[in-house]
């Protein structure tokens, strides 16, 4: 709204420089992951910081400023995509549908022996390429978890999706990345059909302090 009382403004300015500015590399990496394009990422980072500056009053001190910036960044990106008339494409919707089937979480198995060795010998370029080839929603979640170190709950808030979706995208994204790097369709050890996976319920219990 721009109703910016003077004294508070100055105090806010130092706080903004101290809390928000150090995250510019992280915001840039996330913007790259969202846009897949250097020039667009630059614009998005600028927009994110301008919006963050105006909305800094609403940022609660003591909460995760990086996650707050990521959320602004993602919202700006979504608005841009919509404004550009490029409605969420069908393939992306299909991706989402695909991602929300929870069964993926249970299939993950370890990579052992030669496959594990192949993973560990991957170069930085190969790692980047494998990540970049992931479908966007998967890539974003993997970046937030494995590069930026956000918790599932924080990722869910940034991405505006339920925590179950975050987990399913994360596990599948990781698996796709590893399969790509190890050159082998990874040890999807599958669980017998009929297993009840009330996973989000367990998480909910955990949030209520009942243990997973």
């Amino acid at each position: 709204m721009g109703l910016w009382p003077f004294g508070k403004g100055r105090r806010n300015a130092t706080r903004f420089d101290r809390e928000a500015m150090p995250h510019i590399d992280a915001v840039y990496r996330f913007a790259r992951s969202l846009t897949h394009d250097a020039a667009q990422a630059d614009d998005l980072v600028q927009e994110t910081y301008l919006k963050a500056l105006k909305a800094f009053d609403s940022f609660q001190e003591g909460t995760n400023c990086r996650a707050w910036l990521f959320r602004i960044c993602r919202n700006s990106f979504i608005n841009k995509v919509r404004a550009g008339g490029r409605e969420v494409a069908l393939d992306q919707a299909a991706e989402q549908v695909h991602a929300t089937s929870l069964s993926g979480w249970s299939e993950r198995a370890f990579y052992r022996g030669p496959e594990a060795a192949a993973l560990l010998s991957a170069t930085r370029d190969e790692l980047e390429a494998a990540l970049n080839e992931l479908p966007r929603d998967f890539r974003n979640v993997v970046v937030l978890a494995d590069v930026e170190g956000l918790a599932y709950k924080e990722i869910a808030e940034v991405m505006g999706t339920p925590i179950g979706t975050v987990m399913s995208r994360l596990f599948r994204g990781r698996r796709m990345m590893r399969e790509k790097l190890s050159g082998a369709p990874g040890g999807a050890r599958g669980v017998g059909g009929g297993e009840v996976l009330s996973l989000s319920k367990r998480l909910k219990d955990r949030e209520n302090g009942n243990g997973l």
Binding site: T100, S103, P162, T165, S168, G194, L197, S198, K201
Partner: peptide, 8 residues
Amino acid sequence: ASSDSEMF
């Protein structure tokens, strides 16, 4: 969305 109580 994935949600509360489900069965595969």
